[in-house]
Design a protein around this nucleic acid. Structure first.
Lengths: 333, 333
DNA sequence: CCGGCGAGCTAATACGTATTAGCATCTATG
DNA sequence: CATAGATGCTAATACGTATTAGCTCGCCGG
């Protein structure tokens, strides 16, 4: 329609103005006019095949989204991811087609579609090290949301600095006069859990006593028994739902939080838990993690980032009402 | 590696067993073994370029996701969409790169990426008719979530049957003895609003009086004045937040709901509104709409659907505590 | 009048797959 | 033994773009 070759259209379309590529202004205008008239847009698929990039960011959510509540867990991350992707003009490809094998989604499977995207963001509490290794060896650009241990090499990530956050809370508790601290873990070995434990034990080293136990929300009564029996004055509870259960179990037996037992939570609820209480703890900067993961990934893709990018974002401490001063008169040991 | 041509690999990969394509079983096995060893997967981009389909479903959210609360509005739809897409092995492409022009995202713009996907789901309260028209003329497979008026031809959609739901609620109110009904609209001209109004007026035709007014949540006090002044006994409120505001405004002046005024809501909250009250109204089957939109779209894409698909799903009525029997002694007219 | 040079464009090719016509080779049949 | 038909595979091509070498033309200097 403009009386020029396909090559010329491509050059105009990509606004190429290099020294060795010259298009007369009038020709350029003619082509642009026809493009505007017809609403022509280059086929993004062919474009991707011919050149390198697609402006598509893949998002892989590890844990199956249904029917658990993990959807609510991912949501804030996705908000941040979408916001940043929008600002840099990228589309998001959700790899919902990844099959679940042995209760876990797999990145690599027959007919995986990774290469549709320029790179990929990995979301999930537990990520298979073998698949990270494979991504590393393939040289596929990716970023994990949340710190990851090395897997055949360092893993690029944008995580939350749980260790520092927990350590700060421990210090607050020590300043309040707590001497017997107990860490109530979920028992998982995910990096996010390890980091919290590490932060706890590092900061609690100077405490008179720093113990650790595993507990589920469903065993709140037994857990409270144990905590009270060993004279714990403050419990650092990994799982939010467990903290809620412990608080109501404490109240149910006529004791008070934080009068008889202080409770500190170590992260936002991962499933909706109804409670009116503001627990002392910290907030995970989920949206910001989402945003920065896209930022890091685009850097990796266009090669502007040097080295393996690993970022830990600070968590904001939440001053709730569940951490108080232990009553010196009450020593249940 | 298997000592065969690229064509043979392609045939094996696609498990072609047509009469006119024959591969010896041993050759097939050899190829499959090498594929398994190397973890080879065909480049999805090249695949899409060569053949027709991608197994990618585009999702276009019309209203900008930020910073309004519309994100929470879309969430249930996305849940349903994701669930069904997963079950049919499709990936989801979120068109976050669509630019916002005049406060509204545009499907068609320089460098639109529609063709990356096999088809597209449109989400949004108000969708530009001109763009629907363009989609129709281009023959691009799409489905709108929510009923849409014709735009250069019928529009395929999966909507909620607001008209019936509202009509049912009107009938319930009439059975309760209400005679003066007022519809409190948001004043928008979106199809979803029109449908509610239509349902109201159709069912309220036999009422002694059926009025209509526009009101915002921020003008609750004035609105209550008007409603009480004209003797309205039940208000049908389009916007959930407005209903909440009306209820508290009523209570603030010492009156009760539903004692002095019944309030019926006509849809789920679109922004988070804190309230302990269960309003009488109905529930929009958002997740199911999401699921079925994918179902319809895949039907359109593979050509198994005949004609333009238009589905209206029933809404579930919610028996709340805000619709009661009007006190015959109180006639404020 | 010729060689050189820059400007403006295009022909050709690569990207990695799906598809199809058609080439060998083998088997059965008259 | 010639021929037809079936079998197993491959060469060639299309898909729609980005890229680049190189072509043509006009102009200028010698």
């Amino acid at each position: 329609m403009a009386g020029v070759s396909q090559a010329t259209v491509s050059l105009v379309l990509n606004n190429r103005t290099d020294a060795d590529v010259r298009i007369a202004p009038e020709t350029r205008d003619r082509v642009l006019r026809v493009i505007a008239e017809t609403g022509y847009a280059a086929d993004p698929v062919a474009r991707r095949l011919a050149s390198r990039f697609n402006r598509i960011i893949g998002v892989f959510t590890y844990e199956p989204a249904f029917p658990s509540g993990s959807r609510d867990f991912f949501h804030p991350f996705l908000l941040g991811i979408e916001e940043y992707a929008e600002s840099v003009g990228c589309d998001l490809l959700l790899f919902t087609s990844a099959p679940v094998i042995d209760g876990r989604r797999r990145i690599f499977h027959q007919d995986n579609r990774l290469r549709l995207a320029d790179g990929c963001i990995l979301l999930g509490r537990e990520i298979d090290g073998a698949e990270l290794d494979r991504l590393n060896r393939d040289g596929y650009p990716y970023v994990a949301v949340g710190r990851r241990d090395d897997a055949g090499g360092p893993v690029p990530y944008v995580g939350a600095d749980y260790a520092s956050a927990v350590a700060q809370l421990v210090e607050v508790a020590l300043r309040h006069g707590h001497r017997r601290l107990t860490y109530v873990s979920t028992g998982t070995t995910a990096e996010s859990s390890e980091d919290r434990r590490r932060g706890f034990h590092a900061a609690a080293a100077t405490a008179e006593s720093a113990g650790q136990m595993s507990a589920l929300a469903t065993e709140a009564d037994t857990t409270i028994d144990t905590l009270l029996a060993d004279g714990t004055t403050v419990a650092f509870v990994e799982d939010f739902a467990t903290a809620v259960a412990l608080e109501s179990a404490t109240r149910r037996r006529g004791l008070t939080v934080p009068g008889d037992l202080s409770i500190v939570t170590l992260g936002d609820p991962t499933v909706p838990v109804p409670t009116d209480i503001t627990f002392t703890g910290f907030r995970i900067p989920r949206e910001e993690m989402g945003r920065q993961s896209v930022e890091v990934l685009t850097g990796v893709i266009d090669g502007s980032a040097d080295g393996v990018q690993q970022r830990l974002l600070p968590c904001e401490l939440v001053e709730g009402i569940t951490l108080g001063t232990p009553d010196p008169a009450v020593d249940r040991r």
